[in-house]
Design a protein around this nucleic acid. Structure first.
Lengths: 153, 153
DNA sequence: CTACAAGCTCAGCTTAACTTGAGGTCAAGC
DNA sequence: GCTTGACCTCAAGTTAAGCTGAGCTTGTAG
């Protein structure tokens, strides 16, 4: 019982809930891959659905596409990823999330005290100092949150 | 012992750790205010330092400038904000932060289970469904994280 | 065999949050 | 009185993460 192995962009879009244009975009960024039919149309393997699902989930917690791309790149290029492959990835992100949660908690707990207290000089305030990494990260727009997750690479 | 009440952009930049251009930008967005000298140069009151500090802190937790602006707008325009004014503001944000932390925790706890289990179809997976609000939020770039905080207005 | 939906590519628009640069002014030291 | 550094304004560039539309090709259903 050979399952329907190949999916068109439209099908992937429908099933994953992301727009076709977004899929094109992810592919251009190397987050997902496809091969082409004789008529130059994209065909995706089934695992693309899971990849896309992960992309969405990761984005929701503030991980940038670039970082997601790095993580996904750690998955085997040739074969379909096993459960272990995925778990490795999710474990790595768990650490990042833990860190982020801790960060947010500290901010929450410190905020009320700190805002009113006048301690907010750059050097002394714990709130300010925590984010110093973010302070200088190249030019252009800064990411809104996402502290660099620990990378496995 | 009259304290140095007036600060130049450069001084504010140095003390707050943000670039002069960013201060201009915040001012254009109405997040901070200044008056001008005879020679058209900006002069800031001391409370601008705290405002800027808050802007930075809030940004680190993923609050957009627009939302920060709204919150800061709740501060009294005329007089220097009292401690109570600031506390009101921080309390409002605390709720947002609490919500966000809870969200992140649920994600973290669900991630490892969910990624490997194949449940990630759009309809069934709790991870996917949680973020549905974010899925359609106008055109253009989406914010990376920041679920709309409860506004006081 | 002819519509018409679905694909394809490529260029350009969008938002957020700034930065950079050009071209000109202000102020303080020597 | 002049030079130098800090300011000023305004326009345009930058990144991320796509969306939109034009113009053209594929594929499939009637």
């Amino acid at each position: 019982m050979a399952p329907i192995t190949e999916l068109t962009v439209g099908q992937v879009a429908m099933r994953s809930g992301v727009a076709v244009s977004a899929l094109h975009f992810y592919e251009a960024r190397g987050l997902i891959r496809s091969h082409r039919t004789a008529g130059n149309q994209r065909r995706y393997g089934r695992d693309v659905l899971r990849r896309v699902a992960i992309i969405k989930v990761a984005q929701e917690v503030g991980i940038s596409l670039a970082e997601i791309g790095e993580a996904l790149a750690s998955l085997p290029e040739g074969r379909t990823p096993t459960r272990d492959d995925w778990n490795l990835l999710s474990t790595a992100w768990r650490d990042g999330l833990d860190h982020k949660i801790a960060q947010l908690k500290k901010l929450r707990d410190g905020l009320t005290d700190c805002i009113g207290c006048g301690c907010m000089s750059i050097d002394k305030c714990p709130l300010r100092n925590k984010g110093d990494r973010l302070a200088r990260e190249g030019t252009g727009a800064r990411r809104l949150v996402a502290p660099p997750l620990s990378r496995t690479s």
